[in-house]
Design a protein around this nucleic acid. Structure first.
Lengths: 224, 224
DNA sequence: CTCCTTTTTAAGATTAAGCTTAAAATCGAG
DNA sequence: CTCGATTTTAAGCTTAATCTTAAAAAGGAG
């Protein structure tokens, strides 16, 4: 998520991020940012130091105080190099700082570094849970050196699970996350796709990685 | 529980709360609120300042007077920032105040803060009592490094106990809290589930954590 | 110690949830 | 437009969990 008041900068960043495979959302000022963060639940924040209404510094402070965003990775974008020392001095809890002007390549590198440090799964071009490896660039999934052939929905479903391994997800959450918010399909549909996903994953007689939690939903086990 | 007359606001709040793992109910005006509070017994109230029929302020006052809702946590949602000081001045006994417009993230943070202050167990994603650990995210329970397999009702029952460890709970309270208000089942049914829960908990020959209090109910011991 | 109350236990009936299958509907490539 | 692949729905099947019942055991008062 980009928080930045200058539209041209937003577009520059968005272009670079999207072409690296990220999903991007943005906010133009601090107030909008707080709302959007809650709605979109970003995995990382690119936060401009200077912002209308609530300043970047203030957003950072607020986020660090809130329990569920305490560990949201933040990269601050600051205006001039000379200010850097001062900024780092009055550390507001950002994970990294980048000063304008910066090269997109450098920013991408820093983003990946911060994401990797925080959660090795997000932002990587490959997800790993138990003995399953998902290559997000090649759109391939392997388990135990065996290539799996998944349909589009099974792929998205497995990806959603792998990004949230160890959490029980309700059918409703899965429908929201995998199918989309305003799509109306039956709960039972999830069961069918779970079944297909299981079939592929456990083809070689491996243990079932997807745990059914009766009356709640399903969970991808972190470990075999 | 949300008490708010504007449906779009109710939906926004409900969406955010549900995706954070809360169970949500709501009322559209003060009269309905008083009834629903009695029926649903919420753990916390989000209360709009301005409401048709009985105002939010009045509800707050009434609740604070009533013995069984004296300590029900309340977060007031007020219309404008400028009024805040005045409102806080004529304190009606709410635990916190949030002014519109607010970010859902901020509200969630405040909810968790108020809940934590009131009962450190509710709203947390893991419960610990004696040597039992319940993971509410993964829906797993362990005692002494041993994974327990509980059915849905046993799980909910144990959760209810753990959130109220050390208190004796009547069968009626358990039925209300675990089964729900409008469900009609026999008292004896509780016994059977208690038995099943005990069976799982004490499988490895551990001490019985659930104490029977004759003619009253059951209690989960805080310590072994 | 005895009797009455309450709880525990066990077993069977019922209900609910999830799984499987197949057919209908939809989507997308050629 | 057509065909094949994928997704969705619906129905019946299977299994698990729940509730009830009733008998056995335990607890407490007199």
């Amino acid at each position: 998520m980009i928080v930045e008041d200058e539209p041209s900068m937003v577009e520059l960043l968005r272009y670079n991020l999207v072409s690296e495979g990220f999903e991007v959302c943005s906010a133009l000022d601090g107030e909008e940012a707080m709302v959007t963060i809650a709605e979109e639940k970003p995995d990382i924040l690119l936060l401009d130091w200077m912002l209308p209404k609530i300043s970047g510094v203030e957003i950072c402070r607020r986020l660090r105080r809130s329990p569920e965003h305490k560990s949201l990775p933040i990269i601050m974008i600051t205006a001039r190099t000379e200010e850097n020392d001062r900024i780092r001095g009055l550390d507001v809890g950002a994970d990294d700082y980048v000063s304008k002007p910066f090269s997109p390549a450098e920013l991408m590198a820093r983003i990946r570094a911060v994401l990797r440090r925080h959660n090795p799964n997000i932002g990587a071009d490959t997800l790993e849970v138990a003995d399953v490896v998902m290559d997000l660039v090649a759109y391939k999934v392997r388990r135990n050196e065996r290539d799996l052939h998944l349909g589009p929905t099974e792929f998205k479903l497995l990806r959603y699970f792998m990004e949230r391994a160890g959490r029980v997800l309700t059918r409703e959450q899965l429908l929201d996350g995998v199918w989309g918010q305003n799509v109306y399909v039956e709960d039972r549909t999830v069961d069918v796709h779970i079944r297909r996903l299981r079939k592929c994953l456990n083809e070689a007689g491996d243990a079932d990685l997807i745990r059914t939690v009766r009356a709640v939903g399903y969970c991808l086990e972190k470990e075999v």
